[in-house]
Amino acid sequence: METIQSTVEQPKKKTLPIIGGIGFTFFIALIGWGLAMLSGFQKLGPMALAIILAIVYRQIWGYPISISTGIQFSAKILLRMAIVLYGLRLNIQLIIQDGLGLIAIDGFVILFAIGVTMFISKRMKADPSISLLVGIGTGVCGAAAIAAVSPILKSKDEDTAISVGLIALIGTIFALLYSFLFPLLPIDDQSYGIWSGISLHELAHVALAAGAAGQDALAVGLLAKLGRVFLLIPLSFILIYLEKRKGVNNEKTKIAFPWFLIGFVVMSVLGSYIRAYNPMKLQNLLDPIANVSSFLLTMAMIGLGLNIHLQQVRKKALKPLATLIITSILLSIITVFIAEIV
């Protein structure tokens, strides 16, 4: 009887921490999304608010070790699920039809952001892991890009969470600055929309800034931004290749293929097909699924945020933060001239 009872209790002991950890990240994510609906917090967005809540919790009450397996599940598995579903946002057909001209500019933006970030970080002796992540986040699509490449780069959870937090903070500040500067700049609505799309960090930041110039500016801004999201696919495979090259002389180095990127591509194709050929009923499902992916990504970021210890962050994050600000300023200045030409 004792052996039977022990075998029944063992799965419970393993299952409860997983359920508890997932539930914990779900609860904080829910609070973050709730706060983001209030007028004073709308500009920050749910992801940034949820990460702040997770960090504050860690500093006051410590890391919840008893439910750590569930928290790690959110940080690892739910993260990959969110990236796969994120692919539904990408309309490949729209990019091919109207955005091919912007792809070259988007490619330049990504190379510029990563290159300048790494150059400045070396000069400032900033943490190279965080600097590379914020460079990729700045160039591509913010938190989603960081989340996609961090498993490839084998980044620490703490570094990933810090990078996402920095991108969320600076991206929000720049989006608000763009909205403020728009009436003062000698550029038309379309140029302003393109400028927002090729330079701001997150899709949400582009929507916030470009929306200030109207629906046409918002549409072209999101199109320009989607081109950068599209380039996340080749960038990820380039990073896989480079990481394997690094490990050529090191037998212990193994680069696990990020299969979730295949899911990302499949979902991108599926979403593009639904938009092009299927009835409106199916198209109406894309937005709710996109919201689910955002919520799962928020849960994952909470799992990562709980790994942040502020005393260590002070040492590691200040220089990457300065690097991110400088790169973002330079990128904004260069791209505003590019947007006028386009």
Results as ranks from 00 to 15, higher is better:
89 R>N: 09
103 I>V: 12
140 V>Q: 11
81 M>K: 05
107 G>K: 00
90 L>G: 00
116 V>W: 06
125 K>C: 02
66 S>G: 12
61 W>C: 02
83 I>P: 12
115 G>Q: 15
88 L>V: 02
128 P>L: 09
139 G>Y: 12
98 D>W: 00
89 R>I: 07
91 N>Q: 15
94 L>P: 12
122 K>G: 00
59 Q>Y: 12
145 A>Q: 06
101 G>M: 10
134 V>Y: 13
132 L>I: 09
125 K>W: 02
76 K>P: 12
79 L>F: 12
94 L>W: 07
75 A>Y: 03
129 S>Q: 07
52 I>L: 15
54 A>M: 09
86 Y>G: 15
84 V>D: 01
96 I>D: 01
99 G>T: 07
115 G>F: 10
102 L>A: 02
114 I>Q: 04
118 M>I: 01
62 G>R: 14
134 V>G: 02
88 L>S: 03
65 I>W: 10
136 I>G: 02
126 A>D: 14
125 K>I: 12
52 I>F: 06
57 Y>N: 00
131 S>V: 13
77 I>K: 05
130 I>G: 02
49 L>Y: 10
61 W>Y: 01
142 G>P: 14
72 Q>V: 03
60 I>H: 02
144 A>G: 09
86 Y>D: 10
79 L>W: 15
143 A>W: 08
112 F>L: 02
68 S>R: 00
124 M>W: 13
86 Y>H: 10
66 S>Y: 12
84 V>R: 05
129 S>Y: 07
128 P>A: 02
129 S>E: 13
126 A>M: 08
138 T>S: 11
123 R>Y: 04
94 L>M: 03
126 A>Q: 14
70 G>N: 04
122 K>E: 05
103 I>M: 11
63 Y>Q: 08
49 L>C: 07
142 G>A: 04
59 Q>N: 11
117 T>K: 08
132 L>F: 12
55 I>W: 03
77 I>V: 04
79 L>C: 10
49 L>N: 00
98 D>Q: 05
106 D>A: 06
85 L>M: 06
97 Q>R: 09
80 R>P: 08
72 Q>H: 14
83 I>L: 13
107 G>T: 01
106 D>W: 14
51 I>L: 10
64 P>H: 15
71 I>T: 14
103 I>P: 11
135 G>W: 06
144 A>D: 13
99 G>R: 00
145 A>Y: 04
93 Q>G: 07
127 D>A: 01
92 I>T: 01
115 G>S: 08
134 V>R: 06
127 D>V: 01
77 I>C: 01
99 G>K: 04
100 L>G: 10
122 K>V: 06
113 A>T: 15
86 Y>R: 15
